[in-house]
Amino acid sequence: MELRFTRDGIEYNIRPATLADAEEVVALINICSQELYGKDELELDELLADWQLKGTDLKLDSIVVLADEKLIAFADLVDVVAPFVRYPLMARVHPLYRGQGFGWLINRWAQGRVEELIERAPAETRVFMISIVHEKNQAGRQLLEDLGGKLERLNWLMERELLGPLPEVWLPEGYRLRVAKTDEYRQIFTVKQQAFQDHWGFIPISEEQGFENFMQHFVQDPHYQPELFLVAESEEQIVAMLIATPASSYGDDYGWISVLGVLPAHRHKGIGKALLLRAFAELKLFGCERVGLWVDSDSLTGATRLYQQAGMQVVAQFNRYETTMRAGVDLRRLK
């Protein structure tokens, strides 16, 4: 799709994004996030990695709006995987151009794109689009509701400082922590899947597709560090895993906990907290002064309590909206 028009003496161009737009798109995303919560949301390498995920076609899965050749709005639908029922949408409009219909335009484009792809999902299953909006973005929340979106969950950004002394790591007898070996990544993926299968929103995926996604997200991450792939063992079996990075879009000294999972049989024994504290210590050695993570505020496994016990605090809230594009059987775990 490409459209040109002039309004109030300004020439507008609506077209798919290209790799050449990446720097401007990142700048726009970060202008929006700085306005709302004072942090850069994305780095250039992260966006390029997303755009090059298997199955993404920028010509079909993205849109940009330019005003006199300046990029003022953007949306994409990437990281869509089998069974093709969940479509994460990122959509942003420059603060100076809000209230002019561009947010409506790019969201309606996204809905149209999902409608084109809807038959890829299994018959009679629910197909939905996800939008994550900062709680302060009242106009964005209202727009999503006007377009049929419903508030589904609240996500928290939690963080803590790493400058002072850290609590000692304690483990019950029979467990030990260590850095994972690179040839154990498939096993770590399997533990991750088993650990999250009772979490809200979990959708089963084939092992091959899931492991490919795992490698793309965690090993091809621009900040990948093998020393921050940590595992907990019991009787020579991996029973918990944690993946972190020593930097993030929030800063070169801002570490990030990407994922933490403990097998159900080994929960409530202090294993998750031990992995978290070990990660904090490792991140501090990398020069990190602060660490953060995302968490579902209503986590069914008590993750929010674990993070609070490790000294983390909620610093921002994001609302997760879902827009049903086709009603049907919901494949996610909901309880």
Rank of each mutant, 00 (worst) to 15 (best):
L171E: 01
L3P: 00
L331H: 06
M1K: 01
Y12G: 15
R176H: 05
Q193H: 11
I257H: 06
I31G: 13
G112T: 12
Y97D: 15
I14M: 07
Y254I: 11
I257G: 03
T190Q: 05
I14R: 00
G261L: 04
V114L: 06
A17V: 01
T323P: 10
N30G: 11
E2W: 09
A17F: 00
E24L: 05
Y307L: 01
Q194T: 03
R86M: 04
V80T: 13
L230R: 08
W156M: 08
A232C: 03
E159A: 13
V114W: 04
R92W: 05
V64S: 06
I203Y: 00
A17S: 02
L19M: 10
M90T: 15
G292T: 12
E233Q: 04
D68S: 10
S297F: 04
E2I: 15
L283K: 07
Y224A: 08
V239S: 06
A22L: 10
D253K: 00
M90F: 09
F102C: 11
F189R: 01
E46W: 02
E184R: 00
T323Q: 00
L166F: 07
P222M: 05
L89Y: 06
I188D: 06
L177E: 13
E152A: 07
M1T: 08
Y254A: 09
H134E: 13
S206I: 05
G270P: 04
V231P: 02
I118Y: 04
A180C: 07
A279G: 09
L28G: 12
L60D: 09
E116F: 04
Q225V: 09
E212G: 12
A17C: 13
L144S: 14
M129C: 04
L3G: 02
E161C: 09
T323N: 06
R290K: 11
R160C: 08
Q220D: 14
L89R: 02
